[in-house]
């Protein structure tokens, strides 16, 4: 079964069309990257797929459930880490995890297990009693991503997860994201081409609300005749429909 399947998904705001008839399939367990310049419609797509924003037209199925008609069935299945760090500032790392677990309706025994896993994966043991506001930007971002995992989602959306992080923190996050690969379906939006190259099974390129390309990196090279993701991306975005 496809984890995500969109059919003519569209989002219009007052005087702009943010996403134009998006047709996309993301396979279960896949790490799919959505690339695009600013205003391409990546974040709007994520918002529609997570139920944060209602599509103007079309529909999307998440694990077989419609974002238009069955949002209550989808909510337990998805989680998101947006590009801005989303943590409770004056709560400790442990309290942040407890808070998200309580909202997700996890039982105490499950929470203990989730916490242990997150401490192991993210290395939170030594900072679990520190308030989020006192953590460095890198740790805050790690916590923000960890909180999206507390609900044990089947589909995880990571919107620009490494934006603004230094190169070391970024590499550490890549390692963490790679570790999650296969356990759940991950949709990653990013501006960093090397990030998409390092992490993705497949990727999609968006421009002005349209999906210009979907495929593996090899298929991207083949289509554009380029040998690196950045050049291929630029060629697709600048070339538009002329690339065949």
């Amino acid at each position: 079964m496809e984890a995500i399947k969109t059919t003519d998904l569209r989002k219009e705001y007052k005087d702009t069309v943010a996403v134009k008839s998006l047709n996309l399939e993301v396979h279960e367990g896949e790490l799919f990257s959505l690339l695009g310049v600013n205003g391409a419609g990546k974040t709007t797509t994520v918002k529609m797929l997570t139920g944060l924003s209602k599509p103007t037209a079309g529909d999307a199925l998440i694990c077989g459930f419609s974002v238009v008609r069955e949002l209550d069935r989808i909510k337990p299945l998805v989680d998101v880490s947006m590009q801005e760090t989303a943590v409770a500032r004056n709560l400790t790392v442990e309290e942040n995890i407890d808070f998200c677990a309580a909202l997700a309706g996890k039982s105490k025994s499950v929470v203990a297990e989730v916490k242990k896993n997150l401490y192991d994966i993210f290395g939170f043991e030594s900072i679990k009693n520190k308030r989020a506001a006192k953590l460095s930007g890198g740790w805050q971002r790690k916590l923000s991503i960890a909180l999206a995992l507390v609900s044990s989602p089947k589909v995880l959306f990571l919107d620009e997860p490494t934006l603004g992080l230094d190169v070391i923190a970024r590499r550490e996050l890549w390692k963490l994201i790679r570790g999650l690969h296969g356990e759940m379906t991950i949709v990653l939006t990013t501006h960093y081409m090397e990030e998409a190259e390092a992490l993705s099974d497949r990727l999609g390129v968006m421009k002005d609300g349209e999906l210009l390309f979907v495929g593996t990196i090899e298929q991207m090279y083949k289509k554009t005749g380029c040998s690196n993701v950045e050049d291929a991306f630029v060629k697709i975005v600048e070339g538009g429909d002329s690339l065949e």
């Binding site: 944060l52 909510k75 989680d79 801005e84 989303a86 997700a104 999206a148």
Partner: peptide, 17 residues
Amino acid sequence: SLDRAGSFLVRLFVSKA
């Protein structure tokens, strides 16, 4: 307003609440 600015509200809105 800080919850809104830092996307914390987005996290809450995605939850079952």
